[in-house]
Design a protein around this nucleic acid. Structure first.
Lengths: 201, 201
DNA sequence: CGAAGAAGTATACAGTGTAAACATGACAAC
DNA sequence: GTTGTCATGTTTACACTGTATACTTCTTCG
């Protein structure tokens, strides 16, 4: 074989195929549906081959979650934020809700599942490691400077707003809310409004 | 049958021993540590014998969770609520936090785990099936009548306050908060205060 | 006594994640 | 070329999980 033009070690290729297959399984069957055997079978390899590319199942799930955060971050970047800070915050909220509605399983993995290597409060927030938290903090800070919000600990508010949103969506995705998506969105808007009214000066 | 004073079928005896053993396992190893084999071994019977007393693992976990709700309800009943509604709400918050600190695994099972038969919003709230929600709603209604809070949808506020609390505690128990318990409690107090200020008229 | 029914056991099946050993193929150095 | 190295993949196996099925054993009642 004179085969000179060999593929230059397509190591990332299979790793990518694995991630894609896992992603599809996640979307369809949820976190618990992402089993090593199913992923391997979807890719067409043996389960143990997965371990050449990912340390273990948690490692694979972490990569999936990272992809989710990247996509969410991308969506937030497309936001053209302007107008009153209150409206800006609601826009951010809507991006989160859209994401949760579009890909509930991914949202579940990202926020509602215990995972190693997740961000910690407050250090990982203040260090600017979380783009979504950064965006939120920027809007809040700006709102405080312009007098729309009472001066307070920005990071605490970022964290607790995230907690409120996470709690609401967790309950919704967990099937504990008898509302259709748009009803629930309206409810979240009211809830957010109540909260914002509290921090407005 | 002279046998009048027979043990009236001590069926509940083993069922209770099972529940107690499961409860201990839950406390020590968390929800995932409660496996049928371990529970059976702790009781001294065969795994399949558990199924004579509980439909399946989820049934057993539901009974455990019910016990947790009963205890939480009991703790709330001991509260002597008086004074300003804001202070009453904080007292209720503290009961929840105490419970979460005392028995984090149980709290996790009760609020942070997907389970069948969990309360649904709004119907199960409005119907009065949830004692804890009832208590909260009573304080809120009273606060609205006395002018401490702005008139609003009580059940919505009950639900979203629960969501906020759940989100905060979920993040804390999930190891995403670098705070010692009392630090975290103080943070929750500030967070609650911010929220209450929003609904005050 | 004899029947009934409850409680417990034994065995087995289909899953799960993953450790250990081995096979194969592509590339670099001699 | 030959050899060695390293990445990739397979095979097999282990220790778990929940639970279906069938069998035994014990208690209670007619």
């Amino acid at each position: 074989m004179t085969t000179v033009a060999t593929k230059p070690r397509n190591k990332p290729a299979t790793a990518d195929k694995i991630a894609r297959a896992a992603r599809r399984l996640l979307e369809r069957d949820g976190v618990e549906g992402v089993t090593m055997r199913r992923v391997a079978s979807a890719v067409g390899i043996t389960p143990m081959a997965l371990y050449r590319h990912y340390a273990n199942r948690d490692g694979l799930l972490n990569v999936l979650a990272d992809g989710g955060f990247a996509e969410l971050s991308g969506r937030l970047d497309t936001l053209r934020l302007a107008g009153a800070p209150e409206r800006q915050l609601v826009k951010v909220l809507d991006v989160f809700l859209d994401f949760a509605f579009d890909d509930p399983r991914m949202f579940e993995l990202m926020f509602l599942t215990k995972r190693e290597g997740a961000r910690r409060f407050p250090e990982d927030f203040k260090s600017g490691n979380s783009p979504t938290a950064n965006l939120f903090a920027r809007v809040l800070t700006q709102g405080m400077e312009t007098g729309h919000f009472a001066k307070d600990d920005v990071w605490e508010i970022v964290f607790e707003t995230g907690a409120l949103l996470q709690g609401l969506v967790m309950l919704y995705l967990g099937g504990r809310v008898s509302m259709r998506p748009e009803e629930f969105r309206a409810f979240c808007h009211r809830s957010f409004r109540r909260y914002i009214d509290g921090i407005r000066s």
